[in-house]
Design a protein around this nucleic acid. Structure first.
Lengths: 319, 319
DNA sequence: TTGTAGGCGTTATCAA
DNA sequence: TTGATAACGCCTACAA
């Protein structure tokens, strides 16, 4: 009977029909839990995110859900929003004996935490950051961020600020690191000295962006253009500009769904699709049983809109 | 031993210590799956949403996750984004034997589907819509929407449009229904005849809002103000206005995190908190074992910003 | 307070 | 191709 319901090959047609009919008439369904205990496979992937309700993570989760659901795999969400949640997670490691695979999104792990994760002995794929020994789906942050800064340089800007982030634990996420490094290096290549005061580090989100831009505007010699690590930060920056009536070119990163509305120049990445691809890698590993971590690099695109302009225009107008 | 690990009372201190130590040294953890099979309780709540990646649903899910995780309950996400997903869901009803409770968010169920859900025999709480026999956390949509329309009336507007939604199956979600009814009734009370052509029904999202506003602007006698069923629709409407250079007052609904930036007048509801409360109701039912569905009404607030203004001002200016 | 048998509903294995 | 029978790892109940 079990053989029939699972569609194994060695069952006669007649028996199959008989079983299927009986199952239907009793509206019988297999208990996934019992089946998991007996088989040892949980058919579940644990998804770990730092901020479940942010746009970026919502996209990733939705993307992953779509492929997992299609293959009848469960998605167990862990939102490690604050320090207590994180401590609870790594203290108890609730994933143990509970998932067949793990998907982590833009997390900053300590070495000990990575060791914990690897000790689960299941395939792991990281989106937007690198975990040694795990698969990876990401963009080339350095190159993409460099594109953004180069765009500002091409417009003639020389005094360029950056809005960067740190998290609750005052840690710089890997993504923040890479984008800030690209900023520094690109300016260096262009022969522009880095001005410490032009680099703001704030908590992620609109409020952080607004705060950062206000501080930049308060400088004796404010920037004529700003590169924000993400569109949400850029939104905050735009807000500060609008409230103060000042004019500074702003470029973001992500192409958030509202960026077009706000006319924000940005670097587009396909977020939903990264969730799809990551889940696909894990699904394959779970069904075939063999797992060789691979790295997937997604392309990015510079999207030109009205929030950036040549340096001469506005400074002349405003001056 | 099982008694110790589960913290049951009738264990001597000495034994408890001994067991705890042994467990620690072997880094032993109970298998949640085996425990579920034996006890018959899954410690899992199924969460059903129509659009996992939208802001509203992200907030609800994050809110629910925070309380469930705190009590070591699992959250199983089902995103019923399209018709195939929905059919698969109600065809197989994967929740059966798998969850101890269900949380549904702003879903439109048929009677048959409701029957299916109730047949699970577990507590159900609905957020943002009503399911007979289930608990409920929501706002008073009629009253809140009426407030929005009254605001426009108070500003002197008499020709007021509405942007409403239908979903993939061309069904009007309960929320859409209530808000449109409030629109009709509030105008009626004010003695204003309803003009059919002023009510647009579009798919949810910014694109829908933009489309709807364009059609409204194309009317021989366009509205001077528009009530959008949600902020995301309103964003689209604002976009259309900006691109066409026209001026129409717009009020939204939700107080999306970006509404302040866009200066959108709106009706605020506390979304994250609704997720928290709904999950709390289910958690209590799961732990105490008794379940009497209750209904929770959350307050809303009119938030005044710059996207609405008295009718005379702009029409005079534009005319 | 502690130990022990029985059962939860499958899967996997081995005979038949 | 089929039927029967151990695991799977825990919880519950009952006995000691």
């Amino acid at each position: 009977m079990s053989r029939t319901l699972r569609g194994l090959p060695n069952v006669s047609d007649e028996t199959r029909d008989r079983v299927l009919q009986a199952a239907a008439s009793l509206s019988y369904v297999v208990s996934p839990i019992a089946s998991r205990l007996a088989s040892g496979r949980t058919h579940t992937v644990g998804v770990i995110v730092p901020y479940a309700s942010r746009w970026f993570f919502g996209q990733i989760v939705a993307g992953a859900e779509s492929v997992l659901r299609e293959h009848s795999l469960d998605l167990l969400l862990y939102n490690l929003a604050d320090i207590p949640a994180r401590q609870r997670f790594f203290g108890a490691l609730p994933l143990r004996r509970r998932v067949d695979a793990v998907l982590t999104v833009a997390m900053q792990f300590t070495d000990a935490e990575i060791a914990d994760m690897m000790s689960l002995g299941v395939p792991i794929v990281a989106v937007g950051h690198n975990v040694p020994g795990a698969g990876c789906v990401r963009i080339d942050d350095m190159a993409a961020a460099a594109t953004a800064v180069q765009h500002l340089l091409a417009l003639g800007h020389r005094r360029i600020g950056m809005i960067s982030t740190f998290n609750d634990q005052s840690m710089f996420l890997p993504v923040a690191h890479a984008r800030r490094r690209a900023y520094v290096e690109t300016l260096a290549v262009a022969g522009i000295p880095i001005a410490e005061e032009l680099v703001m580090s704030v908590p992620h989100g609109m409020d952080g962006g607004e705060q950062a831009m206000r501080r930049l505007l308060a400088l004796p010699d404010p920037p004529t253009a700003v590169f924000a690590e993400s569109d949400e930060l850029a939104f905050g920056a735009l807000s500060a500009l609008r409230r103060t009536g000042r004019h500074v070119s702003v470029i973001g990163f992500d192409d958030h769904e509202l960026s077009a509305l706000l006319d924000l120049t940005t670097v587009r990445q396909r977020v939903f699709e990264q969730g799809v691809l990551a889940a696909g890698m894990l699904r394959r590993a779970m069904t075939t049983g063999d797992w060789t971590p691979e790295e997937l690099l997604m392309p990015t695109t510079l999207v030109l809109r009205a929030s950036t302009w040549p340096v001469a225009v506005r400074t002349a107008g405003a001056g």
